[in-house]
Simulated assay, not measured.
Amino acid sequence: MLFINTRPSERAASLTQALQAAQIDVLEVPLLELVKQPFSNELHGLYQQIQDAQVIVVVSPTAVNIGMEYLSQANLSLSDLKHIQWIAVGQATATCLKKYGIESHVPEVETSEGMLNLPILTALNAGACIAFWRGEGGRLFMMDHLKQLNMRVLNLVLYHRQCPMQASTVIDHHFESLNELSSFSVLITSEASWLNWLSMMKKYPQLIEKAYYLVLGSRLSAIVAAAMQPYKALGWTEIHDLQPETILQQLANVQGMS
């Protein structure tokens, strides 16, 4: 079964290579690209408060790299943050933090819900300060939940996300071959990428029903399930991380069902 890897271009390669090594055909259709926000007065002001934080939540390798760049622009260093605990959304982000000498807490399920269940967060008292290094539109559920627990949230929006123009070009170019397939698999890792996929599929609604979706996390799985009700979709399955072995196991399960 063909696998459509929808990860941003800079994050897609390792998964694509691992699947291809296992004789899986892969088509890369990046549904998100990450564009750095300028270092504004607002961001500078938030960085001046970051030493108040007990925890910094970092949502992507991109957030790590931009966050460190802007830390320097704010005339701060990692030594100023040595009292702070770090949370990484997943292993790729944790690996990126480690390059800066930072050990981080990583949830078993690489989602907002997974991070909220980490003991480092559940042990915090009301009034604790938590900083987010994130992209525009991301992790709103998590921040809202923490605010409801009377936590102080520092919201550092370091980049925005958009659908790359190349995504539609790739689908247009491969439409005939995709339409000839009885089925294929699509990776969905965020609500933003899911909405971008649906937007592209307005042009090719028949492809929606040829796809089997691998969806990251329970909340996103519920969103996909609700959106699929009008369609005779092949189905979807919930995954809890983006490790190649997890993807390969799920693809083997899908092949077994077909």
Rank of each mutant, 00 (worst) to 15 (best):
L251P: 02
A18C: 06
A21S: 15
K202C: 08
Q206F: 11
A18R: 06
G137H: 04
L207Q: 07
L214D: 00
Q51A: 14
L181T: 07
E180S: 08
V58N: 07
S258R: 15
A74R: 00
M165A: 13
T169P: 06
Q250V: 09
L234C: 08
S193D: 07
M151K: 11
A53F: 01
S14R: 15
C163F: 07
T6P: 02
R7Q: 09
W86H: 03
L248M: 13
G256F: 08
Q166M: 15
Q17F: 06
L195W: 09
V55T: 09
V55Y: 01
K36N: 06
Q48L: 08
E110R: 06
Q243S: 12
C96K: 15
E28C: 13
P61V: 05
L43Q: 00
K36G: 01
A123G: 06
L2A: 05
Q85P: 06
G114R: 04
E136F: 06
T111E: 01
A18Q: 03
R161C: 05
A63H: 00
D144W: 04
N179K: 08
P230L: 10
H174C: 14
P205R: 01
S14H: 13
N179D: 13
Y159G: 03
K210V: 08
I188A: 06
G101W: 02
S77I: 04
I24Y: 14
M142S: 03
M228K: 10
E113D: 12
L121K: 03
S40C: 09
Q73F: 10
V153E: 10
I66A: 03
I130V: 15
V109L: 14
A88E: 00
N150K: 15
A94H: 07
E191N: 13
Q48Y: 07
I87P: 08
S112R: 06
A128V: 04
V58W: 08
V109T: 15
H145V: 15
E176S: 12
H160N: 00
